[in-house]
């Protein structure tokens, strides 16, 4: 079953870097695990910790003034490797959604399959969120999946976002892709016979 997501209101963690690839989100040397658990400990490993495993104080995840369930990042988030471990790491760390002005395809699909909502906003709206957090570290956003909008709580500014209708239903109701496809097993077998 997919993790359920409907609505959240939360402060955000800003990461105004573009083209954040999945090797940054979770470096390959941490992909040796054979379960889905614990990847949050190594989320953004090489930006977060130095070569002696000490936290780098200037990285946003090590700054206690920022917290919240939403990661806000620059455009083309999640490019590169198809590793789902990136979505697992972000979700395992405690995020429920990622906001960016552009997502790489495979990451977006992986996130949706793990109850982690990718919210694609305009460049302008992304900047407004960054500005709001710069003005007040505790600034909150509200994300409503049912009605497909994101709002900056302090200013009331909001924008609607796109989400595939099927994936939206999966996230709101906890539906699962495999159950859906297997419900059509007879069609798969028919297809195999006639082709």
């Amino acid at each position: 079953m997919t993790k359920i997501f409907k609505h959240i209101q939360t402060p955000v963690v800003p990461l105004a870097i573009e083209n954040i690839d999945t090797d940054q989100i979770i470096p390959a040397r941490f992909l040796k695990a054979t379960t889905r658990d614990g990847f949050g400990n190594n989320l953004f490993r090489d930006w977060r910790f130095d070569e002696n495993d000490q936290p780098k104080p200037d990285f946003v995840l090590n700054n206690p003034t920022y917290s919240g369930k939403v990661l806000v990042a620059g455009k083309n988030f999640g490019c590169g490797s198809s590793r789902e471990h990136a979505a697992w790491a972000i979700a395992d760390y405690g995020f429920d959604a990622v906001v960016s002005s552009f997502f790489a395809d495979i990451f977006k699909g992986n996130a949706l399959n793990n109850g982690l909502l990718p919210v694609q906003v305009s460049d302008d709206f992304l900047q407004k969120i960054f500005d709001a957090v710069a003005a007040d570290h505790t600034a909150e956003v509200e994300i409503d999946l049912e009605n497909q909008f994101i709002k900056i709580s302090a200013t009331g500014e909001q924008e609607s976002f796109e989400v595939n209708a099927y994936k939206k239903a999966c996230m709101i109701n906890g539906y699962d892709d495999i159950d859906y496809i297997l419900s059509q097993k007879n069609k798969i077998e028919e297809f195999e016979e006639v082709r």
């Binding site: 198809s82 590793r83 789902e84 979505a87 699909g109 992986n110 495999i178 496809i181």
Partner: peptide
């Protein structure tokens, strides 16, 4: 594809 989709293809030989 991601690992959830690997599971999907293993289970169904299909992909959404």
């Amino acid at each position: 594809i991601g690992t959830s989709q690997v599971e999907q293809v293993l289970a169904t030989q299909c992909l959404l």
